[in-house]
């Protein structure tokens, strides 16, 4: 059972930012609600106001430009799984997304909500680390880009300011030739550990130019594993 709260439904990022600034910690952004409502039902958190941002239409687009893919924060997991653009250009992301939770959660849960809730047992942040993603945050009259390495501060804590909104994620298309993979291990739906790897080969495809490895769920935030990345040096395929 949920305790009573009020609902705000802004239609722009500026309006959302104003509401967050006005109500401070008594308000929380609400998108898919798949994580937030669980915590509220358990009584772990309570907010006097939820700010439903799904009326901001421009935040659920998936587009490509100049070697980058931009994913709006309100894109649901299902939308990412079904995106022909992502299937063609970032199949590893589609593979990761298609295995998040279950079909009902993927229907309503959003990528932005997943990242902002910063639940340590989550998948997307780990893969976005090796992909070199940057997150876009906005508040009234200002925008900024945040490397995904800096976004997660602690379990359930991000670097977003109280009146700031995550608007999207920009992922550079992987260099060629390269390979990207995400594997997770776990019981039922939550991953117990998630591992993401991006390996870039030289043009002869005989040696590794760069290896990126990230691990999630094993600590409060997903992190790159430089020790493993350095192992690329002696490897010859």
């Amino acid at each position: 059972m949920l305790r009573r709260f009020r609902l705000e439904e802004p239609e722009s990022v500026d309006e959302t930012s104003d509401l967050l600034a006005r109500y401070g910690e008594s308000a929380k952004i609400y998108a898919g609600g798949t994580e937030l409502l669980l915590a509220m039902k358990e009584g772990l958190v309570h907010y006097e106001r939820l700010v439903n941002i799904k009326k901001i239409r421009s935040l659920d687009q998936i587009t490509t430009e100049n070697g980058f893919i931009h994913i709006g924060a309100l894109s649901t997991h299902r939308k990412l799984v079904e995106s022909s653009l992502l299937r063609e250009r970032l199949p590893a992301l589609v593979g990761m997304e298609s295995d998040i939770a279950n079909i009902r959660v993927r229907e309503v849960g959003t990528l932005g909500g997943n990242l902002c809730f910063a639940e340590p047992h989550a998948d997307p942040g780990t893969l976005l680390l090796v992909l070199g993603a940057r997150l876009f945050a906005a508040k009234r009259s200002s925008n900024r880009e945040i490397p995904v390495e800096q976004f997660f501060v602690d379990a359930y804590e991000t670097c977003l300011e109280p009146d700031e909104i995550l608007t999207g994620v920009r992922v550079p298309l992987p260099p060629r030739p390269s390979g990207v993979a995400y594997l997770k291990f776990g019981y039922l739906e939550r991953p117990s550990v998630g591992v993401a790897v991006r390996v870039t080969l030289d043009q002869t495809r005989e040696s590794i130019v760069e290896a990126r490895v990230a691990v999630g769920c094993a600590g409060p935030v997903p992190r790159r594993v430089e020790e493993a990345e350095r192992l690329r040096q002696p490897v010859l395929l």
Partner: peptide, 27 residues
């Protein structure tokens, strides 16, 4: 389960499955 895992509360919203136990009615 009341946490979107078991599926007993599943309904279809515009033909898509959702967990009605964790979906606000106004949606």
């Amino acid at each position: 389960c009341d946490m979107q895992v078991c599926g007993a509360c599943t309904v279809l919203l515009d033909g898509r499955p959702v967990s009605s136990c964790t979906l606000l009615a106004f949606e």
